[in-house]
């Protein structure tokens, strides 16, 4: 199988999901006598292309017209490269970027697409995929019909590809800029600057829920514990709806899907839609004053009590060690 991984980056570094997508692609390639190329699109992306070359052969498409990742242009470029290079399988990590851009590219390429893949096997040269449905309550086993096939994978389900000693080839791809669509104009992106790691990429995530009363308490308790552990912060939908945390903090089916080594849920009852976003974490700790909170059912360690008392103790204890 000829496999194309669509890389995601911030013009300086690759997003870690891309490394997981490469790992998935390498696994499929090994089982199908295939080869993997990684497509890096953007403008002034030499350092990203170089980083990608440490894990895969690279196709680099650097153009001023591709400065912002607008869906119509990027999807056109991905579809064109897929056809030109006779790609059988397009892979990306399942992120808001890939859902937008790669989803549209799949629409240009005939619609054989599976989203959020968490497991796979190859049977008779055919991919058999596992993916969650109904907010993760159900796991479906599916195959795709049609060619080429497009897959997004959950980064948390695949160990990221590690850099090899030799740097692979970087092939520069040219495009006809005049042929690109131009019906979406990018205005701005308001990124939240934070000294903490990204919640989808952090090894440890500390998350707060309804029991937290205001933003100051969130910062002191959730943020304080996260900083003590070198982790990221997240929250349940309840806190986002209450305006205590920003939208992009939300962990859950409709927010971010995380699977860190350690997930600490503080004052989160454990609604299905939240569990869908974190239940695959390796170790889960629940701290809640309700001993019957559903979160305890998915947790490895449970601590019943008032987090306003317990968390300062926990921060203190960790600090002392």
């Amino acid at each position: 199988m000829r496999i194309l991984v669509v890389a995601e980056h911030d013009t300086e570094v690759l997003r870690s999901g891309t490394r997981s997508a490469v790992a998935f692609a390498n696994s499929v390639a090994a089982q199908t006598d295939g080869e993997v190329e990684c497509l890096v699109i953007g403008h002034r992306i030499a350092s990203v292309a170089k980083e990608a070359a440490s894990i895969s052969k690279v196709l680099c498409l650097d153009s001023e017209s591709l400065t912002a990742p607008v869906a119509d242009r990027y999807a056109r470029v991905i579809a064109d490269v897929t056809i030109q290079r006779k790609i059988d399988l397009v892979v990306a990590a399942s992120t808001s970027y890939a859902k937008d851009v790669v989803g549209r590219a799949a629409g240009l390429l005939g619609g054989s697409m599976a989203s959020d893949v968490v497991g796979h096997t190859v049977q008779d040269d055919k991919l058999v995929l596992r993916r969650p449905m109904f907010a993760g309550a159900v796991t479906a086993t599916v195959t795709l019909i049609g060619h080429p096939q497009i897959i997004t994978i959950r980064g948390s389900a695949y160990e990221p590809a590690v850099a090899s000693v030799d740097e692979s080839e970087i092939i520069t791809v040219d495009i006809d800029e005049s042929s690109l669509p131009n019906h979406i104009s990018f205005e701005k992106i308001e990124t939240r600057s934070s000294h903490r790691p990204d919640v989808t990429e952090s090894r440890i995530v500390v998350s707060g829920g309804r029991a937290i009363k205001n933003s100051d308490d969130f910062e002191r308790l959730v943020g304080g514990l996260a900083d003590q552990l070198g982790g990221a912060t997240g929250s349940s939908r309840a806190l986002v709806d209450a305006g205590i945390t920003p939208n992009d903090f939300q962990v859950g089916q409709t927010g971010k899907i995380v699977a860190p080594e350690l997930y600490i849920a503080m004052g989160i009852s454990g609604a299905v839609q939240h569990l869908a976003g974190m239940k695959n974490s390796k170790v889960i700790v629940a701290i809640n004053n309700d001993p019957d909170a559903p979160m305890f059912e998915v947790a490895d360690y449970g601590l019943v009590g008032d987090l306003y008392e317990l968390v300062p103790q926990l921060i203190e204890k960790l600090h002392a060690e």
């Binding site: 796991t139 599916v142 629940a286 998915v298 360690y301 317990l310």
Partner: peptide
């Protein structure tokens, strides 16, 4: 048709929660 469903299952997500006595 573009996607063929082979099988569906409900995976258990329950874990044996150890209740700890304190911090």
């Amino acid at each position: 048709p573009r996607i063929q469903l082979l099988h569906m299952e409900v995976l258990s997500t329950g874990r044996n929660c150890i209740r700890v006595s304190g911090v």
